[in-house]
């Protein structure tokens, strides 16, 4: 396995375990690169990448931009606010216009699930999904699994519990696909109102008891409560959510083993995760962020250098 089969990264489901492994071994090399005094390599100096963010993002966008710059690619950024999108231009027109300016690759975040899939049918350049609605966020899942592999040696056979708002979370869905593909066991834990019906069919366990999930797992991936998506009341109050589903030092001390704490950020401190846990030695939250750049470099590099691109 030396190349990716698809020219886009839209869903983790498009990747085989071997392809994920290829991305990981490539990311190992890029992680070494970004820890050098000169943190960049000239690989993609002939490539122009457009970051199209139709939905706000700080970390993912910065991470992609740094990854692109450390590969020496030329980067253009686009955000929906203050652009022609607010004048009523369609998605395809927007992207075709950008591609007409000789852009080679597109990284896109969009509030609608399936936007990247739709775009891939109409334009020919490689597309990387940086999050589409509540559907998928493949690079986040890859960097999460990469961080587990780095911390624990491998992902195979590990027990990973995902806590919080599963219903609105593209991170949860991509994580499930990625972890299952790599042979991990997955359990979801959250309020029944934030648990999609029928999610068990993906081969994951479901519980509503935090203690049960913590006692079971090796790794706890705690998702953010998306306050912006809570117009409908899924739980009575944040305080009540924290009492029932928040993870704190006391809960972790009750179980008699060390578990690894992850969070895709941004953290609501004191809501889903208490500060003493987020800042403890068990937490690999900042390693996740560092690995994010390496993983995105690997994905962009592998897509840009696929042999099929040779004309």
């Amino acid at each position: 396995m030396k190349a990716l089969a698809h020219s886009n990264l839209i869903s983790i489901r498009d990747l085989s375990a071997e392809e994920i492994d290829l991305i990981f071994t490539t990311a190992d090399n890029f992680k070494e690169v970004i820890n050098r005094p000169i943190k960049k390599v000239p690989s993609l100096r002939d490539t122009t990448i457009a970051n199209l963010f139709f939905e706000s993002s700080t970390r993912t966008r910065l991470s992609f931009e740094l990854a692109e710059k450390r590969l020496s690619a030329d980067v253009v950024n686009f955000s929906a606010s203050g652009s022609s999108v607010s004048k009523g231009e369609t998605l395809i027109d927007t992207v075709r216009n950008i591609l007409a300016m000789k852009v080679d690759m597109v990284v896109m975040r969009h509030p609608d699930a399936g936007a990247c899939q739709f775009l891939a049918r109409h334009v020919s350049c490689p597309i990387v999904n940086a999050g589409d609605g509540a559907h998928e966020h493949p690079t986040q899942a890859l960097l999460d699994a990469f961080s587990i592999r780095e911390k624990m040696g491998s992902v195979q056979g590990k027990r990973v519990a995902i806590f919080g708002d599963i219903l609105h979370s593209r991170v949860a869905l991509s994580n499930i696909f990625c972890l299952k593909a790599l042979g991990a066991e997955v359990m979801l834990c959250g309020p029944a109102t934030l648990m999609p019906r029928g999610i068990e069919e993906l081969g994951v366990g479901v519980t509503h008891q935090v203690r049960e999930a913590l006692a079971w797992c090796d790794v706890a991936n705690v998702l953010r409560i998306q306050l912006e998506r809570q117009q409908t009341r899924y739980f009575p109050s944040l305080r009540e959510y924290t009492q029932a589903f928040g993870i704190n030092r006391k809960l972790l001390d009750e179980i008699k083993k060390e578990i690894v704490i992850m969070h895709p950020g941004p953290i609501n401190r004191g809501v889903e995760l208490s500060s003493d846990v987020a800042d403890s030695g068990r937490s690999i939250i900042l390693q996740q962020v560092e690995n994010g750049v390496a993983i995105r470099m690997a994905v962009l590099y592998l897509l840009a250098t696929r042999p099929q691109l040779i004309e």
């Binding site: 030396k2 070494e32 250098t305 696929r306 040779i310």
Partner: peptide, 22 residues
């Protein structure tokens, strides 16, 4: 020293290059 990311000919090859450690 691994030079994969510094090569100028990766687009001219039928097989992709895989990197090694530096």
């Amino acid at each position: 020293l691994d030079v994969t990311f510094y090569r100028d000919d990766f687009r001219h090859r039928s097989e992709p290059l895989s990197a090694h450690t530096t």
